[in-house]
Design a protein around this nucleic acid. Structure first.
Length: 752
DNA sequence: CCGTCAACAGTTTTT
DNA sequence: CTGTTGACGG
């Protein structure tokens, strides 16, 4: 019960929460079930340390799982304290690592303005290396090689150790052993870190420099780690280094929500915490404040199937709750239709007030497409997390590559990406000559490009292009030390004439142009101190460097707009830590969830089950689960049964449904209620093969307005072919000109 | 050097 | 199905 005399951060905490909050020194493990108020406890304890124990904010390091969580934590602490916790470090492991490396990169051979390579950039480098060391990228999948390197780094295995541990019998290992050292050498040469380096290199830094280690141990007298169940070896070692001395370490996590084993996360970190940090106090938070009893019962039954866990049962004071709907549908389109219908039905009734209360969760990103189509055709607003990220769009990556090169002239991956964008007459041959010459002279590509006339076997046009390009980059590099990133970017785009260039590419270029404009707007609004959360370092780095760092470490969930009134679509992994009044879990089929390959590996099935548990516990009021008898995957059809995970859910919690007259409905949809509707899937045309002759099929003529499920509306420019091979060329308002085979495209006549 | 067309592989989850 | 890669001709 709240006491009148309690400071605000201790109000209305239950006894266990309070115990954790008031813990002062020594190791503390908080086993916090889903929805048990762990974020509250974390923030309240920080406030308690500052407010009651007189600890200074700059003595505290708090690590969260996403940037968004970090921002929220900072805001909540500010709210409770009535002021900013100035000097406190709050961020993800990657952000904290990047910050340490910015400060001390020179100790381990990197420049202070290093680049951060995302998965895409590091994959390019892996490919380059494979070619140069003779590991054929066609035979040895670069993604697989990259994954091996990533795993090694998460396990703190450096190239030397990797080579030593390779027996030579495992061919993949043997190839990785050839690629990894050269890959790492090239990263260093161009002063770049990949994501995994942001975890591994800080460990190396602290292990090699005892004085730095001492300094940070003394600075951070209190360390807090959220989502501890998802830490890997590198992260564990980092925490151990910083907090191992004084042992003032609070970790919060839930072994039942460990879902990143495939990324190197080691569930033993949380299971064995008490061995690693002797004398640890353990507090369990089992009171759930989020979900109805029905939802919680389902979650408890599901997770009880797992063997490898500490064991706890969530309790709630809420009783009853709406039954969990289990919906069987025909295929993924039918599933999408049911979900969207249900959302509309709820919104029509009083049970749902806004779209933002709803989330649709799924196992794989590929499932988003059918769902999106469904939302679009019903005109229900939605936002997708994942799929195509803003920063991964081609035009955005191009612009960012310019910025990276301006910030770090040694960034070879960035150089190669944009040296011929826009076209400057620098092709593969020119680039190859440049590479060789640069290597011989020991210069970076940019330096070599500046002296392009010296290279004998270069064409005049190529050399001119190189010099122009180098000059452009150099000019901006000089400005970058003074200018704000927004101004810099605006001028750069202007100088390149990029927007104009994109618009010339046609309607979809205009779209790209808009994206670039959005990036500029983002850069103009960029406030380094706010975004980095590390105010005391802001002055020592350029605005550009900090902007690039934030962009590189920005997760897609971080961009989720909670203000938008839209349904959220995302993977179950992305849903971790979030909650929604109404949750749908789609694709509940054996083989999809759990994925078929989960049966190959011992621990994988339990991890999938934990993922299901995470999904269930996101729901506050209503949970609906759907599965489809048939689903298109990678081109062809799969037929699946209901997921075996559902066996653990007691049937008295469930209400089973089928899509009404499902079989009939999809046939009826061939023509639909609206005139002119024409929707044929190739599965059906296989049997029929007469669809081109179908007398009822609408005929399209030039100039007619049409509606496409994904491309939107447009006008027909041309109709060609006959029978089943009718092709139409359509100018779409949003996506430009497309040629479509009528048989595949679900085109409707657009009635004004 | 650059645009176009055919062949091809891909789907597990992410900082 | 869809986006990316390789071969070819201008």
């Amino acid at each position: 019960m709240p006491e009148a005399s309690s400071p605000p951060h201790l109000e209305s905490l239950n006894p266990e929460q309070r115990q954790a909050t008031e813990h002062f020194e020594g190791p503390l493990l908080v086993l916090a079930g889903a929805g048990s108020g762990k974020t509250r406890v974390l923030t309240a304890r920080v406030c308690n340390l500052i407010h009651e124990q007189g600890i200074l904010p700059n003595q505290i390091l708090a690590v969260t799982f996403t940037n968004k969580a970090a921002g929220e934590m900072r805001d909540r602490i500010s709210g409770l304290l009535g002021r900013e916790p100035a000097g406190m470090w709050i961020g993800t492991f990657h952000a904290v690592g990047a910050r340490l490396l910015r400060r001390h990169a020179n100790h381990i051979g990197w420049e202070k303005s290093f680049s951060i390579f995302d998965a895409d950039q590091s994959l390019r480098l892996v490919k380059n290396v494979q070619e140069s060391v003779g590991v054929d990228p066609k035979q040895w999948n670069p993604k697989a090689i990259r994954a091996e390197i990533s795993n090694a780094k998460n396990d703190l295995i450096n190239p030397g150790m990797f080579e030593d541990n390779t027996t030579g019998f495992d061919l993949v290992q043997k190839n990785v052993a050839r690629v990894y050292p050269e890959y790492q050498r090239l990263l260093e040469q161009q002063s770049a870190f990949d994501f995994d380096d942001l975890l591994m290199k800080p460990v190396e830094l602290l292990e090699k420099n005892k004085d730095l280690l001492t300094r940070y141990r003394e600075q951070f007298s209190f360390v807090l780690v959220d989502e501890y169940q998802d830490t890997n070896k590198a992260q564990f070692r980092f925490v151990e280094l910083i907090a191992g001395g004084h042992g003032n370490l609070m970790v919060v996590g839930d072994d039942d929500q460990s879902i990143y084993g495939w990324r190197g996360a080691d569930i033993r970190n949380i299971l064995d915490f008490e061995q690693a940090f002797p004398g640890a106090r353990v507090v369990r938070l089992e009171q759930n404040y989020r979900s109805t009893k029905t939802i919680l019962d389902a979650a408890n039954h599901v997770i009880a199937q797992n063997v490898n866990r500490k064991g706890k049962t969530l309790l709630t004071e809420r009783i009853g709750g709406e039954a969990i709907t289990l919906m069987e549908s025909l295929d993924e389109n039918d599933e999408a239709r049911w979900i969207t219908n249900d959302i509309e039905r709820r919104l029509g009734g009083a049970s749902l007030s806004s779209y933002r209360s709803v989330a649709v969760l799924y196992r794989t990103n590929a499932q988003a497409r059918a769902l999106e189509d469904g939302f679009r055709s019903k005109r229900i607003p939605y936002q997708v997390v994942g799929a195509v990220r803003f920063y991964e769009r081609r035009e955005i990556q191009d612009v960012l590559a310019y910025l990276r090169l301006i910030s770090n002239p040694r960034d070879q991956i960035a150089f190669e990406r944009v040296v011929n964008y826009p076209r400057r007459g620098v092709g593969l041959t020119t680039l190859e000559h440049l590479r060789q010459w640069a290597r011989k002279q020991g210069l970076s590509l940019l330096e070599a490009a500046e002296q392009a006339d010296q290279i004998s076997d270069l064409r005049a046009s190529g050399a001119r292009g190189l010099r122009q390009f180098a000059k452009l980059v150099r000019d901006f590099s000089i400005r970058a030390s003074q200018a704000r990133v927004g101004e810099l970017l605006k001028e750069l785009i202007e100088d390149m004439g990029l927007i104009r260039h994109l618009c010339d590419e046609g309607p979809e270029g205009e779209d790209r142009g808009r994206n670039v404009s959005e990036l500029i707007a983002g850069a103009v609004d960029f406030e380094a101190e706010r975004a980095v959360g590390f105010e005391d370092d802001v002055d020592s780095f350029t605005d550009l460097d900090l902007f690039l760092q934030v962009v590189a470490l920005d997760a897609d969930v971080d961009r989720l707009d909670p203000g938008a009134d839209a349904v959220t679509l995302m993977t179950l992994h992305n849903a971790k830590g979030l909650e929604f009044p109404v949750v749908f879990i789609a694709g509940m089929e054996e083989g999809l969830f759990p994925l078929g390959r989960a049966y190959d590996e011992p621990g994988a099935l339990e991890e999938e089950r934990r993922l299901f548990y995470v999904g269930i516990t996101r729901a506050v009021e209503t949970l609906s689960i759907s599965w489809a008898r048939q689903r298109r995957r990678a081109g062809d059809f799969t037929h699946n049964g209901l997921s075996s995970f559902m066996e653990a859910v007691p049937s008295n919690l469930l209400e089973e449904q089928k899509t009404e007259r499902a079989g009939f409905l999809s046939r009826a949809n061939l023509h639909g209620r609206r005139p002119g509707r024409y929707e044929v899937r190739d599965s059906y045309s296989e049997a029929g093969s007469e669809y081109g002759m179908d007398q009822d099929a609408p005929r399209f003529v030039q100039g007619e307005r049409v509606l496409h499920e994904t491309f939107g509306s447009g006008a027909i420019v041309e109709v060609s072919g006959f029978g089943r091979d009718v092709r139409v060329t359509v100018d779409f308002e949003e996506v430009g000109r497309k040629r479509l085979l009528l048989r595949y495209a679900s085109l409707e006549k657009d009635w004004p």
